[in-house]
């Protein structure tokens, strides 16, 4: 009897949370899945009570044939891969430097400031920094004899500029997580390795890095999720251009949904992204568990 009332009490406590989750997470997901199977184009005139026609897998099959989507997907992979490599190496490097400094609190605070800036502001800052004629980046490069890089205005460099700006904003995040990981390392293991004669590089490769691996994988997981959903900076900085040179998959989904008003097709793209994210997430979680 007591057990039943406890169970009811427990359900009563978690019920509001479940209801909120259903309303704000489950329902929109199911709704968007429903939309993905329909020709939901805002330009189609519906009669009162009429719904957008159900078209089965047509939107998903169309994605298979859409070279613009495929190109955007490849660009996204490049964006995530290179961005992550820069952020991991720089973030971990700075964390190691900080770890070896004695007075570092103010520096840590200063270094994490970029990750607090809202993405739209980051985009606008990027437009000013990388302006080809009036921007400080090209001015500094010109002092070293490097002239006229187009950055966001050239098809060659626009995606790289996005990666650099994302790295500027999010390297501190990797740095912070790595730094916290370094602080929590079991010092006796590190000291033993030192006693056994392990030098700086070997100590890092064989002791510190393996011990930091779970922490770094969590950081990678978070960053991959974030980068695959990148949108704001692209919108402000390049609008996917010039041409399609910086059009990543989320931006294309946005264009399809909110510029061409093909909500069904856009939702299908969204679900493809969700499936890809789920696969990456599962793999990463397995690695972390291992």
């Amino acid at each position: 009897m007591v057990k039943t009332s406890n169970r009811l009490y427990a359900w009563a406590l978690i019920l509001p949370t479940i209801l909120v989750l259903i309303v704000v997470v489950v329902y929109p997901l199911i709704y968007s899945l429903n939309v993905a199977f329909r020709n939901a184009d805002l330009r189609i005139r519906l009669n009162p009570g009429e719904e957008y026609p159900f078209i089965g897998l047509d939107n998903f099959l169309r994605i298979l044939d859409d070279s613009r989507f495929h190109d955007a997907l490849l660009r996204t992979a490049y964006y995530v891969g290179l961005g992550l490599a820069i952020q991991l190496s720089a973030g971990l490097g700075v964390a190691l430097l900080l770890f070896n400094l004695t007075k570092r609190r103010a520096l840590v605070t200063a270094l994490i400031l970029p990750s607090m800036v809202i993405p739209v502001a980051v985009g606008w800052t990027g437009r000013l920094l990388f302006h080809p004629t009036a921007g400080p980046v090209n001015y500094i490069l010109s002092l070293f004899g490097v002239e006229g890089i187009g950055w966001v205005n050239s098809a060659q460099y626009s995606l790289l500029t996005l990666i650099l700006i994302d790295s500027w904003q999010w390297t501190p995040f990797i740095m912070l997580i790595s730094y916290a990981g370094l602080l929590s390392l079991p010092q006796e293991v590190v000291e033993s390795a030192k006693v056994d004669g392990a030098g700086g590089f070997r100590l890092f490769i064989h002791i510190i890095l393996p011990l930091l691996k779970p922490v770094l994988l969590v950081a990678i997981l978070i960053r991959v999720l974030e980068m695959l959903r990148a949108f704001d900076v692209v919108y402000v900085l390049t609008y996917g251009g010039p041409g399609t040179s910086s059009e990543i998959v989320t931006f294309y989904a946005f264009i399809a949904g909110f510029r061409y008003f093909e909500l069904g097709y856009s939702a299908a793209m969204g679900w493809i992204i969700v499936i890809l994210l789920s696969i990456i997430l599962t793999l990463l979680v397995r690695v972390i568990r291992a």
């Binding site: 437009r127 302006h131 187009g150 966001v152 205005n153 251009g241």
Partner: peptide, 22 residues
């Protein structure tokens, strides 16, 4: 046009023309 013209939106064109005078 200026080298970065492929990135010119309203602000960039206005700035280059009206504020920089180039």
């Amino acid at each position: 046009a200026p080298p970065g013209v492929l990135g010119f939106e309203w602000d960039e064109l206005f700035t280059a023309a009206m504020k920089e005078g180039i």
